[in-house]
Design a protein around this nucleic acid. Structure first.
Length: 455
RNA sequence: GUCCCCAUCGUCUAGCCCGGUUAGGACACCACCCUUUCACGGUGAGAACCGGGGUUCGAAUCCCCGUGGGGACGCCA
């Protein structure tokens, strides 16, 4: 059997979103699974809406998500150019074949593709006008996901605009032929275009590729499919918020596909191994950002220290956390690593660690009221300040022993000192373990912070 | 309106093809445990086969009809 060639064919007319990413991913996975070729083709035939920034966003997003293309812009290939705006000659050449075969006609200055079959006119409620339908030999699609899909009627359609530029249907089919595409994996919203495309393939005498129409992703809130304007739709946003690309990929591959059984979290190599078209669902999936967040958390927790620090630093830079970035690198690294197991997302990092980098951190009034109002917290704080110089600061457990001894001396528990100490050194009631905070802050800084609350 | 696709917990889904399960898992939610805060983690609870007909000894599973959801109906892609 010949090699699988699939393509992802976005148009640079807007932000890159979850739905496009998943279509790209399924194509990429199928190519990698089968040892095939993943082609990136840019469908920029709409001169009005194309934009360079959006084009670059496609490249950046695909790369960030780890989808490398074997052929396409920036990497080349034997079937280029890979931007439709540069393929005008090819479309003209194919158009000539269609004209020669008598399969086109002109109307209102545009070129139309002529369907074969019996014609009749009907009034179309939607368009409020009379249209001509063509009953053709049933156009049958043998879809890998949907099964047999039959359409008995269609309409002639424009393939070249009155300004001479070719339209999506023509370019798409011509390129799939010229680029030797064997499998077309795309969203179900294209299912109703497919009969048109099949007729074009037949008119060109080219083999019809194998189709796989994947279910759509529905927006989280409200009806309808997800679009770039919806909450949580943009890939760019996850990148900015410090989501891990492998977590996002793992999550979106599970929208409409699963390997069977209970498996969810999988390294990419395993996803590639298990992915196949017959495993793709037929029903649409609703996007759920909570589950994505959880997937991201599980990946975050297992990040090696070095990578975590790199990612967290990038987040701090984006957040403009100057104090943190100006701090001693070893100290910053330590702060980041003790925070890693406690946070749910990298975007929490700037706020979660801010008080480590200034002695002028705010004291949360609500927490202050709660902590100081319970028991004799002021006395506990005074006792702790008095005892601290005698503490062994070598490591966490040494500090813990010091704290435990202090509590025992006064017939109290660890918790009686923990809350007020935490309030004093951080100004809040959340953070790493108090003994760890002491150790990282060091004796002098800890002492000064404890005294600051008393003042 | 016409055409096309789809239908299991709130959500993602397993099971369906090859009828017999206490209909399983994950997220979310709730309770409890762990605990030095906050997270993580652990245990447990609640939560679904859209409706109606058929076929069958037996239907989530096969068939039909409703209903519901989604998509398409551009000189957008």
């Amino acid at each position: 059997m010949s090699q699988v060639r699939v393509r992802f064919a976005p148009s640079p007319t807007g932000f890159f979103h979850i739905g496009s990413a998943r279509t790209a991913l399924f194509n990429w996975l199928y190519a990698r699974h089968t040892g095939g070729v993943f082609v990136l083709r840019i469908e920029d035939t709409d001169k009005e809406r194309n934009s360079e920034p959006f084009l670059n966003l496609i490249y950046d997003s695909l790369r960030w998500l780890g989808m490398d293309w074997d052929e396409g812009p920036q990497v080349g290939g034997n079937f280029g150019p890979y931007l439709q705006s540069q393929r005008g000659d090819i479309y003209r050449e194919y158009l000539a074949k269609l004209k020669a075969a008598g399969r086109t006609y002109e109307k209102d200055g545009a070129v139309w593709f002529k369907l074969l079959g019996e014609r009749h006119k009907v009034f179309d409620e939607h368009r409020k006008k009379e249209v001509e339908k063509v009953k053709n030999a049933p156009s049958v699609i043998d879809d890998q996901i949907r099964g047999r899909v039959e359409r008995t009627e269609d309409e002639d359609f424009v393939i070249v605009r009155s300004d001479g530029s070719p339209v999506f249907h023509l370019c798409n089919v011509v390129d799939d032929i010229a680029m030797g595409i064997t499998h077309v994996i795309r969203g179900e919203d294209h299912l109703s275009n497919t009969s048109k495309h099949v007729e074009l393939f037949k008119a060109f005498g080219a083999p019809v590729p194998s189709y796989a129409h994947i279910p759509l992703i529905l927006k989280q809130n409200g009806p309808g499919k997800m679009s770039k304007r919806d909450q949580g739709a943009l890939i760019e946003e996850y990148q900015r918020r410090g989501y891990l690309p492998e977590a996002l990929v793992n999550f979106i591959c599970l929208l409409g596909w699963n390997p069977g059984g209970d498996k969810e979290k999988m390294p990419i190599a395993e996803i590639i191994r298990l992915f196949d078209l017959p495993g793709v669902n037929q029903s649409n999936a609703r996007f759920d950002d909570k589950k994505l967040a959880h997937m991201n958390l599980t990946y975050l927790l297992e990040q090696p220290a070095d990578r975590f620090v790199v990612l967290a630093r990038a987040l701090l830079e984006r957040a403009g956390a100057k104090a943190a970035l100006a701090a001693d690198p070893a100290y910053l690294r330590e702060v980041l690593l003790i925070s890693q197991p406690k946070i749910k997302s990298l975007e929490e990092i700037p706020a979660y660690t801010a008080w480590f980098f200034t002695e002028d951190y705010p004291i949360d009034p609500k927490v202050r009221e709660k902590v100081m109002g319970k028991g004799d917290s002021k006395a506990r704080l005074t006792e702790l300040i008095a005892a601290l110089p005698g503490f062994d600061f070598t490591n966490d457990s040494a500090i813990e022993q010091g704290l435990a001894a202090l509590a025992a001396k006064h017939g109290l528990g660890f918790g009686d000192y923990q809350a007020v100490a935490r309030l004093a050194v951080s100004g809040t009631n959340v953070g790493p373990s108090i003994t760890t905070i002491f150790r990282v802050l060091g004796r002098e800084r800890t002492l000064a912070r404890l005294q600051r609350l008393l003042a």
